[in-house]
Simulated assay, not measured.
Amino acid sequence: MAAWMGLVGRYPALGALLAQVVACMVVAIAVVAALQLGGWRFSPLSVGLVQGAVAAWLVRRMGLSIWWWGLSLAFVPAVLLANGAALPSWLFLLGFVLVLLLNWNSISERVPLYLTGARSTDALATWLERRAPDFRFVDLGCGPAGALLCLARRFPEAQFVGVETAPLSFAIAWLRSLGRSNCRIRYVSLWRTDLADFDVAYCFLSPAPMAALWRKASAELPTGAWLISNSFEVPDIPADETLALHDWRQSRLMLWRMGH
């Protein structure tokens, strides 16, 4: 089971696909049983909605990010609705392109879009309150920058930088940061980001890059700076501090202090 969950963490699309297949099988068995035992018949759309709910529940149990839940819930119902509607073919291409632009990093770096939730943001803010007010914070893969902007508003004397290379995520983050003087969004890979100017480097990536990220952080972050990872460990390097988030996934923030 641990090996399987590790595989899903590296390739979330594989987990979402498996959830769709399993949900289809479960719902098909239930529909056939209801027809044979009770003579009950269901509309295709109602069956699709149930299938989507089962798939979304499975994706949630796998620990995938919230946008995978919505995609899993809506996929089959959307196909059924589209099948009966005169929709232009370009609409499906547009949907594919949007998903691709949001998850560009999952192809090249095996880093899907994970959104930092409210519990993680609150835990980060509580921890950051211990620091001097003018700290420098970088989010390595900030996505649409919801958490980063929340922290920037909460700590106006600090400086925040988000780096992102998924084009649509970057565009959303950049637009949202306009007018926020203490927050900048850069279209640059985390691997090309010099960490020497930061006191805190935060990431919510995947298991795949964590060993390489540790080597980069160890070489570039100044002594006394912190690396914070949401949910994913650095292999064989115990965290100096762990913050439990008390969510349904039992996720946590792991913190490493450099050079001590």
Rank of each mutant, 00 (worst) to 15 (best):
F92G: 02
Q250P: 07
L175Y: 01
F75S: 00
A34F: 05
F232K: 14
H260Y: 05
A28C: 12
R154G: 01
S89E: 14
L101I: 02
W191L: 02
T223N: 12
W69H: 08
A219W: 03
W90R: 12
E233P: 06
L253K: 04
F42V: 11
A123Q: 01
V200T: 03
S65E: 12
Q51K: 00
W248P: 00
A171E: 00
G15F: 09
L64T: 04
A123D: 03
V32H: 11
A118R: 15
Y202S: 03
S106H: 09
T193M: 13
V50Y: 04
V21P: 05
L168F: 05
R61F: 07
Y187H: 08
G39S: 07
F75I: 00
A152D: 02
V31K: 08
G70Q: 04
E157T: 08
G143D: 14
T121N: 04
E109P: 01
G259L: 08
F155K: 07
W57A: 15
A2S: 11
A211K: 15
D199Q: 07
V76T: 05
Q159A: 06
R153F: 11
L18F: 06
W40E: 09
M258G: 08
A86W: 07
R192S: 13
A19D: 08
S106Y: 08
F75P: 00
A132Y: 15
V50G: 10
R176Y: 04
H246S: 13
W67R: 03
L140G: 00
G146E: 12
V50T: 13
D134I: 02
G9E: 07
A55K: 08
R61T: 13
S251V: 01
L113I: 09
T223K: 15
V234L: 15
L81T: 09
L87W: 08
A217Q: 06
E164G: 05
D139Y: 13
V200L: 06
S120E: 04
L102P: 10
G141M: 11
R131Q: 12
T165E: 08
D197K: 06
P222F: 15
A34Y: 08
R252E: 13
I66L: 05
N230I: 10
S218Q: 10
R154M: 03
P167D: 11
